[in-house]
Amino acid sequence: MNWIMIAIGMTLLGIALIWYTRFRLKHTQVANREVDEHELEVIFNKTIDLIQSEKYFLNKNLKLSNLASELSCNERQLSRSINKYGNGNFNKFINSFRIEYAKEILIGGQFDHYTIEAIAEDCGFANKVSFYNAFKSCTGMSPTEFRALKQSS
């Protein structure tokens, strides 16, 4: 009888310990996720500030690792923050800044004598094809069509 009571007591203690560990682990994971989300948002905001103020997007050799190093964070955190808050991956994110800059050049007037290839290079694109593809993806028209439309209006 004594052994049965001890066995039942140990079983109940084991069940309670397992339940407590699982509950505690889930609670800790939720708390870590909340801290993690805030940290990702802070990293993303710092990324935007740095890219805009220093015009990092103009560097055609820009890599995630360069930016992470400059922001003093790891690549995984930076990538996650861009994926979550930047509506796409790193390349798409950087290209969106490049396209906005290209649109300013194309609309501006003082660069009308520039070829599309020269504008692509000035905006940080490695080649004309990637510039055309990114521009069309963002605006729905080619840079040449965009330039013609803005010049006619």
Rank of each mutant, 00 (worst) to 15 (best):
W3D: 12
W3Q: 15
W3E: 15
M5W: 05
M5R: 11
M5P: 00
I6K: 14
I8G: 02
G9R: 02
M10R: 10
M10A: 15
L12E: 05
L13A: 15
G14N: 11
G14M: 07
I15L: 15
L17C: 14
L17H: 02
I18V: 08
I18Y: 09
I18R: 08
W19L: 15
W19H: 09
R22W: 10
R24H: 09
L25Q: 11
L25I: 13
L25F: 05
K26P: 01
K26R: 15
K26T: 09
Q29G: 09
Q29E: 15
A31I: 13
A31N: 04
A31H: 13
N32V: 06
N32C: 07
R33C: 05
E39M: 15
L40S: 07
V42Y: 02
V42T: 11
I43C: 10
I43W: 03
I43E: 08
F44Q: 08
N45Q: 10
T47L: 04
T47V: 09
D49F: 06
L50E: 05
L50W: 04
I51M: 10
S53F: 06
E54A: 13
E54R: 13
E54T: 14
K55S: 14
K55C: 09
K55P: 00
L58G: 06
L58V: 06
N59Q: 03
N59M: 06
N59I: 12
K60L: 01
K60H: 10
K60G: 04
L62I: 12
K63E: 09
K63L: 04
S65A: 14
L67W: 05
L67K: 05
S69N: 11
C73P: 04
E75L: 00
E75Y: 00
R76C: 03
R76A: 13
R76D: 06
R76P: 00
R76E: 14
L78C: 07
L78H: 07
R80I: 04
R80P: 00
S81V: 11
I82K: 03
N83L: 13
K84Q: 12
K84D: 02
K84E: 09
G88E: 04
N89L: 11
N89F: 07
F90A: 03
F90R: 14
N95Q: 10
F97Q: 05
I99Q: 01
Y101A: 05
E104Y: 00
I105K: 03
L106D: 01
G108F: 01
G109M: 08
Q110S: 10
F111W: 03
F111S: 11
F111H: 10
Y114I: 00
Y114S: 06
A120R: 04
E121D: 09
E121N: 07
D122F: 02
C123D: 00
C123I: 02
G124S: 02
A126G: 07
N127K: 05
N127M: 06
K128W: 02
K128T: 07
K128C: 00
F131I: 12
F131H: 08
Y132A: 00
A134K: 02
A134D: 04
A134R: 05
F135H: 02
K136S: 11
S137T: 12
C138V: 13
T139M: 08
T139I: 15
G140Q: 08
M141F: 12
S142F: 04
S142G: 09
E145V: 14
F146V: 13
F146K: 08
R147V: 12
A148I: 13
L149M: 08
Q151N: 11
Q151F: 15
S152V: 11
